Simulated assay, not measured.
Amino acid sequence: MSSRMEQIIEEIEEYIDNCKYQPLSSTKIVVNKDELEELLTELKMKTPEEIKRYQKIISNKEAILADAQAKADAIIAQAQVQTSELVSEHQIMQQAYAQANEVVMIATKQAQEILDKATNDANNIRMGAIQYTDSSLKNIEEILSHAIEGSQARYDNLIHTLQGCLDVVTANRNELLPEEEDASSGQAKQETTAAEPATQEAPANEIPEE
């Protein structure tokens, strides 16, 4: 049974697959920001829970080793009891020692095998949990990277469009400015001519003062 975290990742992948492509593009898609943010928010909330679950699995390593140690101790204790019983019988003293040593060796070997197997199992569980968590985080990283790239592309397109509009407006103003300057120059010339006083000749019989 898959976890909720895996289900959310599958929903995000399915959502992205169903998004429409932008006009004239085979790689860029149009996404609903609210829907995608809702899925990502839920994913962020579930991630700590999943990591705690894997940490709990890893912590079970100690319990596995403790159980293995208990089993090993029980085997050794049983072997010691059997040794004591064999040794107590004087008529089979030599055989008792031989059997006792053999039982102890077998018990020690079995205990070591149990410990080794428990250690390997615990390490395998730990590595599996770490790999799964890393894989899940990698999927999240890729999703966020794609979202950032899409946002940057939309921002670049907006800047390009605004720059084009600015260029058109600037060109239109430049076309209007020469006409305004010519009209202003003509009007200023007419005002200057009208303001000049008429030249009056002095009377012939009037002697100018020295």
Results as ranks from 00 to 15, higher is better:
Ala72Met: 09
Gln163Ser: 15
Asp121His: 07
Met127Ser: 15
Gln95Tyr: 13
Cys165Lys: 14
Met93Gln: 12
Lys138Met: 02
Gln80Arg: 11
Ser136Lys: 07
Thr27Gly: 00
Glu49Thr: 10
Met1Leu: 14
Lys28Pro: 00
Leu144Val: 10
Ser25Glu: 02
Gln80Lys: 12
His160Pro: 06
Gln22Glu: 13
Ala63Trp: 03
Lys33Gly: 04
Lys138Gly: 04
Asn123Gln: 05
Met127Trp: 07
Gln152Pro: 03
Lys52Gln: 13
Gln200Ile: 14
Ile64Asn: 05
Glu196Asn: 04
Ala183Glu: 03
Leu144Glu: 09
Ile16Phe: 05
Ser84His: 09
Glu14Pro: 00
Val168Lys: 03
Glu38Cys: 11
Asp116Thr: 15
Glu141Lys: 13
Glu102His: 15
Leu39Thr: 04
Glu142Gly: 04
Ala188Asp: 02
Ala111Leu: 02
Lys71Gly: 03
Lys46Phe: 12
Ala107Cys: 01
Asn157Arg: 10
Ile207Gly: 00
Ala70Asn: 12
Asn124Met: 08
Ala202Leu: 13
Ala188Cys: 03
Asp182Gly: 03
Gly150Ser: 09
Ala194Tyr: 01
Leu137Pro: 05
Glu14Leu: 09
Asp134Pro: 08
Pro208Gly: 08
Pro197Asp: 01
Gly164Lys: 00
Pro208Asp: 03
Gln95Phe: 11
Gly186Cys: 14
Gln187Met: 12
Gln69His: 06
Leu144Arg: 13
His146Ile: 15
Gln95Asn: 10
Ala202Cys: 10
Ile148Lys: 15
Ala129Arg: 00
Leu86Glu: 13
Ile64His: 04
Leu115Gln: 12
Thr161Gly: 07
Val81Gln: 10
Glu50Tyr: 11
Glu181Arg: 07
Gly186Asp: 14
Lys71Ser: 07
